[in-house]
Design a protein around this nucleic acid. Structure first.
Lengths: 206, 206, 206, 206
DNA sequence: AATGAATGAGCGTTCATTCAT
DNA sequence: GATGAATGAACGCTCATTCAT
């Protein structure tokens, strides 16, 4: 599909779908390896073992692949928040949510850092991220609001704002831990601290 | 540093110093306006009313001016943490520190966002930032540690880690608030929430 | 031409002939719409509702379709010149020939402009056009020569050259009229002027 | 001047002016040699003996140099029309104007052909050309109108339209003569024919 | 015959940095 | 020191054509 007007993208054949998938996988790996800014389209195609031009058969720009790679990743991360199955008590539930998020974050550590990078200059991407963030924070906020109604959490804080702040604390602490070398020793300490701070910040009975 | 031909070195004449200062001021304004990546050296020189080539008389690279602009800014921000003068009680002290930081942050809002941008791809800058952060967090940590010794804060958390996490919460919440449009209505609510969460997270008596 | 594997050759099956015809029709429409340079092979195939690759089953290159589209068009235009049926007098005959040409030209206005475009850079096409032009001018020239022999047209001009110049006047005036927006109001005035100038230039009795 | 936002162009120093001139001269030669479409920016810079990037110091695009080359050329051609100094009689005046134009045209033969090329696809350029043409035709038209008032030219034709048609005849006949190999033998015959046809078309006394 | 994916040379443009004046 | 021109590697994207199915 040598151009034309549409940036097209969706392959019609099995073979095309395979190539597209190869490109997506390669893109992710290269992005993780070099960051968005240092990634060249050649790097991706070389890594995927396809011709240079084939990239543009499936993606109109470098940004476009990134967006899609990130989108898939967001899907995977989506399940954090305070949702996972009811547990013994609220504090434990916070801890478990943190842990789930932690694991997902670490699984995608490099990409999470690159996502942070792109978010600093690409508006379209910023928006995508804001949305994912908002839905995730919204879920936490609803849980907190319920706890407030149940008298487990003081009512003098705004559930939404608090959920956002705590999510940010967890999220960005992990980010910094990653970009600053991911000292494996520090991981457990960090995680425990985040758990404890979250629980206490909400005033939950430990 | 008795270097013989330090390029981009400090200016020796009065006039040179003025030009350099003009460039620094212009650089900051342009960076704020367009971000680091979108800033061209011409933008800076044009804004400073200086010849294109003169830029390289004072700075070896675009990164170099940025580093210096950021460095000055870090100085100004340095005084946050839990230090400012003793107050009625620990909780108030946290609140005041937050407020001080908040004001400094907002005063430099745009640059703070750009700093975030550069930190995502420039290692040298990442290091500079890490240091400033470390010293700032260190100071908070020492205060927290003292409180722990005084029995005001539970000892089951690591002071350094906690200080870092809370700083991150405040810092990055403000950052997100800025890049997402700085809704003026939300500011006070956000700030109060951050204060309350910080205080409760540390277990300080309110 | 008993070639064994004439690529892009004439289709053998009924179905092939239809596809080829669809492509030719689509090509003409797209060329008219976008010009030769801005036409992509995709545009043609998409417009024809045919697979991309099928284009190359019938035409070796983009130039090739154009050549064929133009060739058909030339056929249609061929009948201008001073030939059409004898009329009341020479002046009227000129007028009628002009009118016939106008109509054909206007019917194919867009393509005529595109042909002009391609003629400026494609040598093969230039030659094709030169031939058509030559035969058309030749016919006019023969009529003029006869009129010269009959004393209706002064003999101090070269029939061939004059025929060419007048054809050019008519042809290119129409072309300019088209590319400059085809003001419908100006059409009649232009045509009448061209008629009068042609008749007087040849010195024909009005 | 390594970019920025302005496409700038005007050099501030003597040296810059020289380079710019070198580029313009080289551009013209290369355009004449290869046509607009086949000209690469490298060709121009190589020919001018300057660095590739220097081209963009003075011209924002390939189109831009072309526009300027053509503009200069139009200046030179401007003096055709029926203006040059009063002569013995109208017919002679037409002949002299034709001759003057003829010489200018031939002096710039190659460029005239390239201009035709660019006019077929570049709207901005089409407009530039239309303007030059209009002013040139306007001048001729005014002369013809006067002759009509003086009874030298029949009043049944529209001066403007006639001037345009005859200019087109001369202009495009020369163009075709050039692109079809410029047979030197044919030049004189062509010229004389154009003169005679112009004079007679206007009905001027010979 | 038909389909649509694969190919890759090619080109315009950018812009940090260096240099001549 | 100041000025502004010169440099050229680098990169994203296009699209006619070829190929595998």
């Amino acid at each position: 599909m040598p151009s034309g007007d549409d940036p097209g993208g969706r392959p019609l054949t099995e073979r095309g779908a395979r190539t597209r998938e190869r490109l997506l996988a390669a893109a992710r790996e290269v992005f993780e390896e070099r960051g968005f800014l240092e990634t060249r389209v050649t790097h991706i195609t070389r890594h995927a073992g396809v011709a240079y031009g084939s990239f543009y058969t499936y993606f109109p720009t470098k940004e476009a692949v990134f967006l899609e790679v990130a989108d898939r990743l967001f899907e995977e991360m989506t399940d954090h928040a305070l949702v996972p199955s009811a547990g013994p008590g609220p504090a434990d539930r916070v801890r478990r949510a943190n842990r789930a998020y932690y694991e997902a974050y670490l699984r995608n550590a490099r990409m999470m850092a690159i996502i942070e990078q792109v978010a600093t200059f690409n508006e379209e991407f910023q928006e995508l991220r804001r949305k994912h963030r908002a839905s995730s924070v919204g879920r936490s906020a609803r849980v907190i609001a319920r706890w407030q109604r149940e008298g487990l959490v003081p009512s003098d804080i705004d559930a939404e704002t608090a959920a956002g702040a705590l999510a940010t604390m967890v999220d960005h602490s992990l980010y910094l831990w990653i970009v600053q070398g991911s000292d494996p020793r520090g991981a457990e300490r960090l995680l425990e601290t985040l758990d404890t701070l979250s629980v206490r910040a909400l005033g939950l009975p430990d």
